[in-house]
Simulated scan of single mutants.
Amino acid sequence: MAYEDLIRETALADDRLIVMTAENRALIRNLPAVLGPRFIDTGITEQTLIGAAAGLALRGRIPVVHALATFLTLRAFEFIRTDVGIGQLPVKISSFVPGFLSDGNGPTHQAIEDVALMRGIPGMTVFAPADEADMLGMLPQIWASPSPAYVRINTRPGTYQHAPFEMGKAEVVATGTDATILVYGMLFEQALIARELLEAQGKSVGLVNMRTLKPVDEAALLQVVRAGGLVVTLEDHFQTGGLYSILAEVLLKNELTAKVLPIALNEKWYKPGLLSEVLEYEGFTGQHIARRIAEKLGADPAAITTKTEVVENQFAE
Rank of each mutant, 00 (worst) to 15 (best):
A290T: 07
F71E: 04
L275G: 13
P148V: 09
I153D: 04
H162Q: 13
Q201V: 04
Q141D: 15
L139M: 10
T180W: 10
G87K: 13
Q201I: 09
A179N: 06
I246Q: 05
V126C: 03
A290L: 01
T308G: 07
Q239T: 15
T285H: 02
P272G: 05
P164R: 07
A290I: 05
A57P: 00
E199D: 10
T180C: 07
V260F: 05
H288W: 08
P98A: 13
L230F: 08
V225S: 02
W269K: 09
T70H: 13
V231P: 12
L243E: 07
S102W: 13
V34C: 02
F100T: 10
I121Q: 04
A111P: 03
A299K: 01
W269L: 09
F39N: 00
T108V: 02
Q47G: 10
E295N: 03
F100A: 14
K169H: 11
A200C: 08
L207T: 10
A33Q: 11
L192Y: 09
E249H: 04
I142L: 05
D178M: 08
T240C: 11
T108E: 08
P37E: 01
E132K: 08
G99T: 10
Q161V: 15
V115H: 05
V19R: 00
T306H: 14
A248L: 13
I80E: 08
W143I: 14
M118V: 11
V173D: 02
I62Q: 02
R291S: 08
L182Y: 06
A316D: 12
M20I: 06
I93G: 10
K259S: 15
R29L: 05
N30W: 04
E199W: 06
S276L: 01
I289K: 01
P146E: 03
V91C: 06
R61I: 00
E196C: 10
L198M: 11
G36E: 06
P90Q: 10
L265H: 05
T45D: 12
K214Q: 11
A133K: 14
P146H: 02
F79A: 12
A67D: 13
T308I: 14
E196S: 15
E309S: 04
E235C: 10
P146L: 01
K296N: 12
F100N: 11
S276K: 13
A302T: 10
A302F: 00
R291H: 04
